[in-house]
Design a protein around this nucleic acid. Sequence first.
DNA 1: GCACAGGTAGATT
DNA 2: AATCTACCTGTG
Length: 314
Amino acid sequence: MTGAVDAFWSPWQDVALPEPLSPRVLEEILDGGQAFRWHPQADRSWIGVWAAQAAELRLSAQGTLQARGPAAAGPAAETALRHYLDAGRSARDLADGLPWRSDAHLARCLEAFPGLRLLRQPFGETLLCFLCSAAKQVPQIKQMAASMAERHGPPLFPRAAGAARHAALFHRLPTWTELAQLPEAALRDCKLGFRARHVHQTARFLAAHPGWLEQVETAPYAEAKVRLCELPGVGEKIADCVLLFGAGRLEAFPVDVWIIKAMSRRYGLEGWKPAQVAHFGRTHFGPWAGLAQQYLFAWEREEKKRGGSSSRML
DNA sequence: GCACAGGTAGATT
DNA sequence: AATCTACCTGTG
């Protein structure tokens, strides 16, 4: 006998991942700056929404991942979740292709976050979230995404007992077509600030160019990046984030201030410009440079959280 | 009160 | 071609 509240969710099911995860690594995957729509719950589970999908994730004591979705979502949801998590691919095997044997710092990053993986997020909403990311920290980006979804994205499910607790959560983000209908002021009301103009103009551009986004998503990396940079508010960093997190292009190597600092401190690249760091990263880390970037990023964030003192020496 | 934040684009050296 | 600066807004 389960209560009415739990009738909303399907039973918990194992999600077979190639590697077990620690709570710390799961947090880094879901809340470490690649996705902005996962919310930690009091019981250490995570509730998240992507496209028209919703799921709750938790770890067993053994570090295996378990998931449940809205009962109404049906069996296709499991396939969608496995794709989103890129569950068929081993993060360890992928990371093994990085030059950790000759790079001691990278080696300790890989060791510190075993199983850290890149998500396969929907292309369009990855673009939207990273257009909002300029000069913002993760909690604020999450706030903007939540606000846009709640106000301008339709609810995923009819009101149900279980959904009521998280009613505000269970909206999908507005599509670019829907965004094109909104006045810029509506986006400013979602706390986007000057990013509202970028989102608005991008939406208008995409509305005027049907199929553009789909073409860019499947174009070769170099071409896709050039095209993305044509959008207002998209520069090299955001283009690389969209391609890495929203199109599975592991050769994309986004260079933000964290990576500048990391490369400066750990690799002695003091005073290097972003474009120089990007070139170094691509050549040093190789075809999966974007994966390396995620490990480096996780390391720096962790150190800051620990109040790392070495970050200020030299 | 004010600098700063996971950037970009246009102006100014 | 390299280096400022404005752009919104919450947080410290």
